[in-house]
Amino acid sequence: MSDGAAFRRMFIRDLVLDAAIGVYAHEHGRTQRIRINLDLLIDDEPPPSLMSRPAVGRDDLARVVDYETIVNATRASVAAGHVQLVETLAERLAEICLADPRVARTRVMVEKLDVFPDAASAGVEIERRRRS
C-alpha cells in the first residue's frame, strides 16, 4: 500500500467447519470442529468524488474482493484432506486470501473447538502481508 492510500477491511467471522486435522493417532480418521476467522486489509482506491458520480458502476462486485469466493476456497481447502497442524492450515488460508492482488495483508485464526473440556478453543493466529 502506498502512503495516503485508502483501504477497507473485509472479514469472515466464526466460520465453523469439520476438519480432518491433528497429529495424534486419535485425531486421524475422523473430523473435528474448527472455527476460522479471516481479516483482509484491502487496497481500496475509490474514484474521486464517489458520492457525486452516478450510481452506475459504483455498486459493482468487480470493484471489491468477493467474500463468497474466499469462503468457498476456505471450505475447499479444509475439505481437501488431512492436515496435521493448525499452523499449516492457517498458512494455506493466508495464501488463499493473498491470492487477490488487492489484498495487502491478512490475519487468519484457526481454532480447534473441542480439544479441552475446560477451554473454549485452542489454536493459532497468523498475520501475513503481500511482499512488495
Rank of each mutant, 00 (worst) to 15 (best):
V83Q: 08
R92I: 09
I36R: 05
V23Y: 10
G22Y: 11
L38K: 14
P101V: 13
R130W: 04
C97Y: 02
V124C: 04
L89Y: 05
R129M: 04
N72E: 11
I34Y: 00
R102Q: 08
E127F: 00
D44Q: 06
V110Y: 02
R8H: 03
R58I: 15
N37S: 13
I70G: 09
P54C: 12
R131M: 05
A79E: 06
E127Q: 00
N37Q: 08
I126E: 00
I126W: 09
T69R: 15
V78H: 09
L113N: 00
I12R: 15
D3M: 07
A25Q: 04
C97F: 02
A90N: 05
A90Q: 02
Q84D: 15
T106I: 08
E127G: 00
R53T: 13
H82A: 10
A90L: 09
D66N: 15
D3T: 14
A55H: 07
R35P: 00
E125Y: 06
R63A: 10
P48G: 04
V78F: 13
R9T: 15
D14M: 05
M51D: 05
H26W: 10
D14N: 07
A19N: 09
R9D: 04
R75A: 05
V56M: 03
R13L: 12
A76D: 03
M1G: 14
R33W: 01
R105P: 01
R30F: 00
V23F: 05
D114W: 02
I96W: 01
D43E: 12
V71T: 14
V23I: 09
E87M: 07
A79K: 12
L89F: 11
R13I: 09
P47L: 13
H28W: 08
G81F: 09
A55N: 01
R13H: 15
G4N: 05
E95A: 11
I21Y: 03
R129N: 03
A99V: 14
L85Y: 02
C97I: 04
R30M: 03
V23P: 01
A119H: 13
P48T: 13
D100T: 12
